[in-house]
């Protein structure tokens, strides 16, 4: 079992950048991303794994960064919303009005981005299954599902 009894420096691979930091053993990945690395796109919503606002990609899979210790993330490929730029998905979210307050959006984007990478042919049932990990309190969800569908369709076409 991994053991980190004392704080020590480690390096995280975030959006392709190798970043050094010295977390406390109890620091979550969410905490380190936001407080140490200034990547505040991932949001705390419940810090209990219920809402998904903190979702980032770790080795290609959506992970709730409030449930992963920073120490566990070393040596893995971390991607946050700050690493998404001008993607079809982001455009689709804007077009479909798939957010209102925007607080849950980073998490939805990272879940959906992972889905698009792993399940490029996803049907609606698969989309729904993936997106159920995230909560939104503003929209009616239809907009978010539509955005993800539109992004998948556009990627399939090109």
């Amino acid at each position: 079992m991994l053991s980190y009894p004392e704080p020590g420096p480690l390096t995280l691979n975030v959006n392709g950048d190798m970043l050094s930091l010295t977390p406390r053993p109890a620091d979550t990945l969410l905490y380190s991303l936001r407080q140490e690395l200034g990547l505040t796109g991932a949001k705390p919503g419940c810090e209990n794994g219920d809402c998904g606002a903190c979702t980032v990609m770790v080795d290609g899979l959506p992970i709730k960064s409030c449930l992963m210790l920073t120490a566990e993330a070393e040596g893995r490929e971390i991607r946050t919303v700050e690493g998404l730029n001008n993607t079809v998905l982001q455009d689709a979210f804007m077009d479909a009005w798939a957010f209102q307050c925007g607080y849950c959006t980073s998490g939805f984007l990272m879940t959906a981005h992972a889905l698009m990478e792993r399940e490029p042919e996803a049907d609606e049932a698969t989309i729904v299954e993936w997106l159920r990990s995230n909560l939104c309190r503003c929209t009616g969800y239809e907009e978010i599902v539509q955005a993800v569908k539109a992004a998948l369709e556009q990627t399939q076409r090109s």
């Binding site: 991932a42 946050t80 919303v81 700050e82 998404l84 804007m94 957010f99 925007g102 959006t105």
Partner: peptide, 8 residues
């Protein structure tokens, strides 16, 4: 909108 889809 552009800031809300980029974490900014």
């Amino acid at each position: 909108a552009p800031n809300k889809v980029t974490g900014r």
